[in-house]
Design a protein around this nucleic acid. Structure first.
Length: 134
RNA sequence: GCGGAAGGCUGGAUGACCGCUUUGUGACAUACGCUGCGGUGUAUGCAUGGGGAGGAAAGUCCGGACUCCGAAGAGUAGCGGUGCCGGGUAACGCCCGGGCGGGGUAACCCGACGGAAAGCGCCACAGAAAACAAACCGCCUUGGACCGGGUCGGGCAACCGAAACCAGCCAAGGUAAGGGUGAAACGGUGGGGUAAGAGCCCACCGCGUUCCUGGCAACAGGGACGGCACGGCAAGCCCCACCGGGAGCAAUGCCAAAUAGGGACCGCGUGUCGCAAGACGGGGCUGCUUUUGCCCCAGCAGGUCCGGGUUGGCAGCUAUAGCCGUCGUGGCAACGCGGCGGUCAGAGGAAUGGUCAUCCAGAGGUCGGGAUCUAUCCCGGCCUUGGACAGAAUCCGGCUUAUAGGCUUUCCGCGCAU
RNA sequence: GGCGAGUUGGCGGAGUGGUUACGCAGCGGAUUGCAAAUCCGUGUACAGGAGUUCGAUUCUCCUACUCGCCU
């Protein structure tokens, strides 16, 4: 273990409430094979990580992605920014530790729907995935 | 006032709450490293201050900087590019000025704009002929034969004979004016000339050669001569002039981690003198040659491939061929030179934002008023709607492509008034 | 991000400056008691836009889309 990775592993538990961003293609592919909920503005996927997969087992990780169907680079980046804001405001309180979440942007709707509607849909989708609502 | 032409600038504004990234400061907290135990370095958090997308950031079409390939020097073969002339520039296929050709009433716009008498190739169909010209029809002359018409003679007539007048036929020759075609037909128009014709001759135009004048040049103007000889295509091959070594920041260098530090093949190769330093010689180094240079000469180093591992971090990485503003100066201009002031994103699955409110452009509807022959236009109120193209990825200079609108300068044509 | 290649009927796939082959599929007919196989016939294409040329699928430029390689 090098010094940098060792330092990350010793971070106190309070810091793990922060969201970490998914970057690896493999993580996205694993998430796509697990449970998902579709909303007009986005698709939410959730996966429980196996033990020992990351140094910090209680961390919530989240990823954002948009296919080329969403539009050009400006449209894709705008969709990802809005989804990132939704996750930043809602996920640290409502998310379960040790899980990976992936938000997928959809054509037109992600940019067009109101922000309050997105937040409502996000909470609803989380409730379904966590099993507290059918 | 209407219609146009050429540029330049701009590319929503303000506020509130919540965030991201970079950087300065702190003597604050946590972790780790070093320690001479005084400290010090790095990372993270916290507090506070500053910076944070474009005119095209795009396409990757050109030119460079930079890095590696052998130090990127010279010549040459091949390949690729550029292509009127002069200037600007680090350089360019870019920009400016000029020439020539084409378009437009004009302002102005457009042009891959060297060479087709160096050579090869192609020109389908149609047409007589598609490239050193030739001669199918036609026109003309001469000769022959005498079927037809006409003429003449004989005969009442049928008919017979003569001459070679007309048309046709055959042969020899002249000619290229005319000929359906085609993208393109071997100078054009007019006159003379001729058997018919023809640059055969003349005038003008076009073309070519040569001389003079102006211009740095492209080229322009004028004179003399020639007498048609020279079709098109070079974004077909090619010739001429000039330019270019190849690859690209996922280049390249360093650190850490991890695996079995593994296997196969190729190339070079055992030199001489000297105690040594070194010298000589041999071999290798981008298609080839050459100059200098580098490496090797006893087992080290080099190359290719296979198998396995990693998919991390740091540098390169953002400011100088700088750029921006302003003043002076040289130049028709592009641009150059000098002074002063300012300094301008550096992310890395990728920040530069999210939400809300108000305002300003804009569009639509409606109401009221005014102008006008009408179409319509102007002013004010209310409601609704609504923001073009588009996101840095090593960095610069260009080109090209996409783009709702708004502001502004100069010029041209027409109409009206003076 | 950088570099390179391609686009021809419904599908695959040649081609070249002068009317775009061929195979499979589709449709119609023949054959058969009915089908399959076989035979005959038939329709449908040069990614889009400019330029060069008498003429462009081909040559040149721009635009759009697709695919591959490089850490």
């Amino acid at each position: 273990m090098d010094g940098i990775n060792a330092a990350k592993g010793d971070i106190p538990p309070a810091v793990s409430l922060r969201l970490q961003t998914l970057t690896k293609r493999a993580d996205f592919q694993r998430a796509s094979r697990s449970a998902h909920v579709a909303k007009p503005g986005f698709i939410l996927q959730m996966r429980r990580r196996k033990d020992g997969e990351t140094p910090c087992p209680d961390q919530i990780r989240v990823g954002f992605t948009c296919s080329k169907k969403v539009g050009n680079a400006v449209a894709r980046n705008r969709a990802k920014r809005r989804l990132r804001e939704v996750a930043r405001l809602g996920l640290p309180q409502a998310g379960l530790p040790g899980h990976d979440y992936v938000l997928i942007g959809r054509k037109n709707a992600t940019a067009a729907l109101s922000f309050a509607q997105h937040q409502k849909d996000f909470q609803h989708a989380l409730d379904i995935l966590h099993g507290t609502r059918r």
